[in-house]
Nucleic acid binder design. Structure first.
Lengths: 200, 200
DNA sequence: TTAGCTTATTCATATAGTTGACTATGGCAA
DNA sequence: TTGCCATAGTCAACTATATGAATAAGCTAA
């Protein structure tokens, strides 16, 4: 029952189809609340049943028809109550990469190399994501300075969460690069010696 | 089937009871893989059935007996295969606070105030967590410099993931403080004028 | 012209995660 | 001396999430 809040938050930007939400979750909410397409379609249906969103079918000529959902007044009220109400649940993270890093000492050089590769991949992904975020930021600012934007824009929520995403990815990249360095240094220091004997 | 990897990673530090794992997940793995006690007890039982962990009952005098689990050789092999194998799933985040921030423009000053309070709470929690991480770091280093530690310690995984936790919480704090500032500025700029009229 | 991609959605099944209550024991403080 | 907190765990029921496949249309490049 928390996904629906994220969905409603996304629908604040305007109407969207299940498919729209599924790919990128309107490219902003997805960064802090992931969901699979099936999850979204089902939740949207339920929400429609409860009157939180309303759907209208858009006939399309060269593609399948789609149902565009928008937030109803009732949905808006529920969302407002949620925002104003109780404390937010603490941030929940699930990160396989960290589990692997935690285990980096388990075997020999090959295992370290595998972890290294995984960290490098994360750094690449984060770099790409950061670049995308930066472009989104520029589009939002549209020439204005941050101060101007924050003082005059109608909505600042999406900008602030985007800042959150940027901070997260920056942190990821910095951490990852440090780890790569440190592990390379260590591998060099151990020089195939003790590490190799541990690899059995 | 991913929780078990986190559990095995935690058991690399040595044997632990379900209860030990539940409160703090050996105080390190929990930072990137949360699980409720029930989840852990159930998973440990299953893993025992599959021979990944073994349990021994420790009779206690002034407390209930406990079952201490440790990683078996089979478990170790499975964990190694996991670490070396396929790419890690991308980081999954669920953050209610971000959903609320995304919605900060939904109503009037009261709603903004609620979001502000939620962000402030997050900053406090993150500050406390960061302090705890710093203490853990000092304990790990035990007087050595980071370079010395990374070159000589038997295991560096837990240190590197701790660094990840530190980076994350630092990012959280910085972001949160920026948001608090920005929203306060904006509230002042709007000065109870337009914001109040939107509150209906 | 056929294989694969994108749009757009639905169905069924499997796995994972949450919630609340319940059993025990002992320590500590009001 | 009652009540709450910490240790240590179990059970049942529920909700949420993920996986895989199916359908159906048109577009594009080999």
């Amino acid at each position: 029952m928390a996904l629906r809040n994220a969905v409603m938050a996304a629908l604040l930007e305007g109407e969207a189809s299940g498919y729209d939400l599924a790919k990128g979750f309107e490219a902003s909410v997805a960064n802090f609340w992931m969901a699979t397409p099936q999850q979204l379609y089902r939740e949207l249906e339920r929400m429609e049943g409860e009157g939180l969103v309303s759907a209208r079918v858009v006939q399309q000529e060269r593609r399948p028809n789609k149902r565009l959902f928008s937030l109803t007044e009732a949905g808006r009220r529920v969302l407002r109550a949620y925002v104003a109400g109780g404390p937010a649940k603490p941030l929940a993270i699930r990160d396989e990469l960290m589990v692997k890093v935690q285990c980096v000492d388990i075997g020999g050089a090959e295992d370290v190399a595998a972890v290294l590769a995984a960290v490098a991949e994360r750094v690449e992904r984060s770099t790409a994501k950061l670049a995308r975020y930066r472009r989104m930021q520029e589009r939002m600012l549209a020439g204005r300075t941050e101060d101007e934007y924050l003082a005059t824009a109608e909505r600042v929520g999406p900008y602030l969460t985007l800042q959150g995403g940027i901070a997260l990815e920056k942190g990821n990249i910095q951490w990852g690069e440090t780890v790569l360095e440190r592990l390379a240094q260590r591998a060099a220091a151990l020089g195939g010696g003790p590490a190799a004997t541990l690899s059995g």
